[in-house]
Amino acid sequence: MAELQSVNHSAICVHDLQQAIDFYCGVLGAREASATDFVTEDVIKGRSLHRSIIIEDYLIALMLARDFMPMPPDEQLRGTHGFRHAFGVPRDRFKNLMAVFKQNGVAYEGPVEHHAHGPFGESIYVKDPSGNFLEFLWRRDEGVRYDGVTGVGEG
């Protein structure tokens, strides 16, 4: 047994909050969780300007970058900026996901098949509009029952 339950949330930076919401909610199906906009009390307390979204069991705080973040080359779709978030898709929905990306003009790389002795099946790789790398995959252990994820949206 591990001494940790889950990854609860991440904070990442984007260039345009509305553009990010359109991508994460409009394409990926996330829902908005909260927003900290230009509110005097927040600014005085030093809170970041951000909007939070929830993708099923995961919350991402989308924070406005301090300045323009250098973008990866257009043709690079698989990569990291020190880290990369990977989201699961049921195996029987994986092809549908690629179709959704095509319909929405989201370029992707893959699918790439992982080694059969591990839990990962096939992945595709995309970037969000601000150049953050993302991965979507189906997993070979999708039928295994683990502890449920709790606490999402509360951090």
């Binding site: 001494e3 339950q5 889950s6 990854v7 609860n8 904070a11 323009f68 250098p70 020190g82 951090g155």
Partner: peptide, 17 residues
């Protein structure tokens, strides 16, 4: 390793216990 993109800030990941 660069754990943060240039010009980003407050990047972090929360691990739940």
């Amino acid at each position: 390793v660069e754990p943060f993109r240039p010009n980003s800030s407050s990047i972090h990941h929360a691990l739940m216990m």
